[in-house]
């Protein structure tokens, strides 16, 4: 099977992302990368836990003063929903429905942008209302490194998905483009996996004290 072969709904394979050697390698390599990402985020989480609330003096705000439930809840719902919409996108990819896949990827991107907007607002709020900055304390550095690294992943994921959507808008689905979309959706889910631990370990555990 050639990568640029033209398909119809009837001839489209059940697992198009793994039909070609290129697709199989992408799939395997990407999971290896996700294993590495797990370790990367673990180091950031570990650093955060070791440095949480480590501030030079009592003028500095601590985790329980900073975090508020409503904002984190809205951000969590946005990212969780965007994970479902990218599942829908892959469902349509497997059914060889390029237009619907693009539509759901578009919705995923909008939800991701909304999440990022809230994060920008949040960081801005901490910096200006609480003087909680990257350099104000060890706690600040560990917090912004961990949460900011996740935010950077969201931004990168958005750029990735938008690029795929624009670049392949005319080409549509074939065995060359299907693995690309599939791997990007895996990345997007992984961002949500990391966020589940961020909202639990950083925000919820921070509010508990």
């Amino acid at each position: 099977m050639k990568a640029d072969e033209k398909f119809t709904y009837e001839t489209w394979p059940a697992a198009p992302e793994k039909q070609t050697l290129d697709g199989k390698n992408k799939f395997l390599g990407f999971w290896l990368f996700l294993g590495g990402e797990t370790v990367l985020f673990a180091t950031l989480f570990a650093t955060y836990l070791a440095l949480k609330d480590r501030v030079p003096n009592s003028d500095h705000y601590l985790a329980k003063d900073l975090f508020e439930i409503p904002l984190v809840f809205v951000m969590t719902m946005l990212l969780l929903t965007s994970s479902l919409t990218s599942v829908y996108a892959m469902y349509h990819m497997k059914n060889f429905n390029f237009k619907k896949m693009q539509l759901w990827l578009g919705i995923t991107v909008l939800l991701g942008l909304a999440f990022l907007g809230f994060e920008v607002y949040e960081f801005n709020h901490y910096v200006h209302e609480y003087h909680h900055t990257f350099t104000s304390s060890a706690f600040g550095t560990a917090f912004y490194t961990l949460v900011g690294f996740h935010g950077a992943h969201v931004a990168f994921g958005l750029a990735w998905i938008i690029t795929l959507m624009v670049r392949n808008a005319k080409r549509g689905l074939d065995l060359y483009t299907a693995p690309k979309f599939y791997v990007a959706s895996l990345y997007w889910h992984f961002i949500d996996v990391v966020w589940v631990f961020i909202f639990t370990v950083v925000y919820l555990m921070g509010m508990v004290g």
Binding site: L28, T38, V39, A46
Partner: peptide, 26 residues
């Protein structure tokens, strides 16, 4: 293979976290 990669990552992640929350103190 994905499970092997991911759980290897989780294993290292667990040891890292364990080290940072137990043997580091101030």
């Amino acid at each position: 293979a994905p499970a092997l990669f991911l759980y290897s990552g989780v294993f290292v992640a667990f040891i890292t976290l364990l080290a940072f929350v137990t043997i580091i103190w101030w």
